[in-house]
Amino acid sequence: MTTLAYLIPVALFLGALGLGGFLWALKSGQYEDLDGAAERVLIDREDKLDC
């Protein structure tokens, strides 16, 4: 019983964290171009490495 007293809040907190993360990602437009995101990893970035 005592273990439950903190295990349940911990479980709920972790779940809520995931839910919050998902809602944040949704709001910041990260699900708007799923096909594009999959292809974009193939693009070489033109970073200048001469530092």
């Binding site: 708007e32 171009d33 799923l34 096909d35 594009g36 292809e39």
Partner: peptide
Amino acid sequence: DARVNLST
């Protein structure tokens, strides 16, 4: 800037 959306 220009941004392509591949899905749409």
